[in-house]
Computed example of a mutant assay.
Amino acid sequence: MRAAAVVSAGHPAVAELTVAEVMTRCPDSVPADAPLCAVAAVLATNRVSAVPVLDGCRPIGVLSEVDLVRAGPRARGDRASLTARQVMTAPVATIAADEPLSAAARRLAATGVRRLFVVEHGRLVGVLSRRDLLRGYLRDDDEIREQVERDGLATGHQVLVRADVRDGEVLLLGRAEYRSDLPGIERVVRAVPGVVAVRNRMSFWWNDEVERSPR
């Protein structure tokens, strides 16, 4: 039988994964003054479709295979004269390393881009692709269970929590002090990364939702 997690009032809510926890670190990049032939070599050698363009350590744009193709007519036989700064797409889509994954998902959906470049104090530290984002939600069942039981349920009242997890589906067991706590507990569990469904089988000590008849 699994040990239960006892969660008291004031316990912090379940922590969501951050961008830094799933991003790809030290992504390939090119300086702003790099000639296009050097950019093409980076793309081909590393088998990536786009790279951030840096001014020092700060990303100022992104240069993709599509940008290189579009640069052909502009070059008119003198492609060596063009630099990454002249051909890149700007501004670049960035996100802070400490942002939650849900914020990254919204940003990707809103911008329609395939990747976000991750910054910390303006400095490039990683890249977050759609695939990275998906990986953040594909978590081991035991890991999900441990987070649900450990970080628990900030309901304002003491609760006893056990969770059984199969393929991301959580069977929530245990007991809350008040019946009115149960919807809030379920909302917190649904917010745990990796949870795909919740079956709430928790009981309660006191039914505080019973309407009292007037005397």
Results as ranks from 00 to 15, higher is better:
Leu124His: 09
Cys57Lys: 15
Gly156Glu: 06
Ala13Met: 14
Arg114Lys: 15
Gly77Thr: 07
Arg139Pro: 05
Leu128Asp: 04
Arg107Lys: 11
Glu143Ala: 07
Arg106Ala: 15
Glu120Gln: 14
Asp140Ser: 08
Ala41Tyr: 13
Ala90Ile: 04
Asn46Ile: 04
Val14Ile: 13
Pro193Trp: 08
Ser49Arg: 11
Ala40Phe: 04
Ala75Glu: 08
Val159Thr: 00
Thr83Gln: 02
Pro35Gln: 05
Val170Phe: 10
Gly61Met: 06
Arg150Ala: 04
Asp181Leu: 05
Ala104Pro: 01
Val6Glu: 00
Glu146Gly: 08
Ser64Phe: 04
Val51Ile: 03
Arg107Tyr: 02
Asp132Lys: 07
Val125Phe: 14
Ala41Val: 13
Asp55Lys: 14
Arg199Gln: 12
Leu182Phe: 14
Thr94Phe: 04
Pro35Gly: 12
Arg215Leu: 14
Glu169Ala: 15
Met23Lys: 05
Leu36Gln: 06
Met23Glu: 01
Leu172Val: 00
Ala97Arg: 08
Asn46Gly: 09
Val87Arg: 14
Glu120Pro: 12
Leu108Cys: 01
Arg114Pro: 12
Thr89Lys: 10
Ala75Phe: 03
Asp55Met: 15
Val92Asp: 03
His121Met: 07
Val118Gly: 06
Arg190Gln: 10
Asn46Phe: 09
Gln86Ile: 00
Pro12Ile: 06
Val6Gln: 04
Glu209Ile: 09
Val113Met: 07
Asn46Ala: 11
Gly56Phe: 12
Leu134Val: 11
Ala84Thr: 11
Ala163Glu: 01
Thr45Pro: 06
Pro27Thr: 09
Glu143Asp: 14
Ala9Glu: 15
Glu21Asp: 10
Pro214Phe: 15
Ala110Tyr: 12
Leu128Asn: 03
Ala40Gly: 06
Gly56Ser: 11
Val159Pro: 00
Ser102Arg: 15
